Amino acid sequence: MEKIMDIDLLKQLAKDITLLYVEDDEDLRNSVIRYLSKIFPNLSVAENGQEGLDLYRKNQYDIVVSDIEMPFMNGIEMAKEIKVINPSQEIIIISGYGEISYFINSISIGISGYIMKPIDYLKMNQKLYESSLNVNTRKENIE
């Protein structure tokens, strides 16, 4: 049985974490931005993979959450480029496609989590919690 995510604990973990959210669908993007901004005070947004990669190169975020199917550069291509820059990068992929090749590609490049659309926010919270915990642990180890 999956444990219920404590949203207050997630907010506490997320307070110093930078998050990049990449999504081309405007309605979904606006909905998820409203949700994520209540948890992550340091949130940036891109509308496609190329824009996301450009922002990442400038700012190097702690967590990247991205759709797969987008114009200019898809989420898997962007994730591969980001993993070259930072092999330990926390990346959570959101997909509307149950296509196994996307899932296998995600695993092969070391994606931290995979969430299917429509988004189950409890599952999203769990993945964000796990990634936030990993980021904070790495930051503590560096200090």
Rank of each mutant, 00 (worst) to 15 (best):
I33G: 08
A14K: 08
I115H: 03
Q60M: 05
V45D: 04
Q12C: 12
I94T: 06
D62M: 04
Q126I: 14
M116S: 13
I119G: 03
D54M: 13
L28W: 02
V64H: 00
L55N: 10
G113H: 06
K123T: 14
M124R: 02
G98P: 10
P71D: 10
N59I: 09
N30Q: 14
S95P: 12
M116F: 15
Q12P: 11
K3M: 13
Y35G: 03
T18S: 14
S44T: 15
E51I: 07
T18D: 09
I39G: 08
K123R: 14
I17T: 07
Y35N: 07
T137M: 03
M124A: 14
N105G: 13
L36R: 10
I109N: 02
V64C: 00
I85A: 00
Y21E: 05
V64S: 00
L9A: 14
M78G: 08
P118G: 03
D120L: 10
V65Q: 01
M1W: 13
Y114W: 12
I94R: 04
I7T: 13
K117M: 13
D25E: 13
G110A: 00
K123N: 11
L36T: 12
S106W: 04
Y21S: 12
P41L: 11
I85L: 03
K38Q: 15
E143F: 13
I100M: 12
I93G: 09
D27F: 15
K80E: 13
G49V: 10
P71I: 03
Y114K: 10
I68R: 07
Y129C: 07
S112V: 01
Y35R: 04
I7Y: 05
L122P: 14
I68E: 04
Y61P: 05
M73N: 14
D120A: 09
E23S: 03
I111P: 04
E81K: 10
D24H: 03
Y121T: 08
D8I: 08
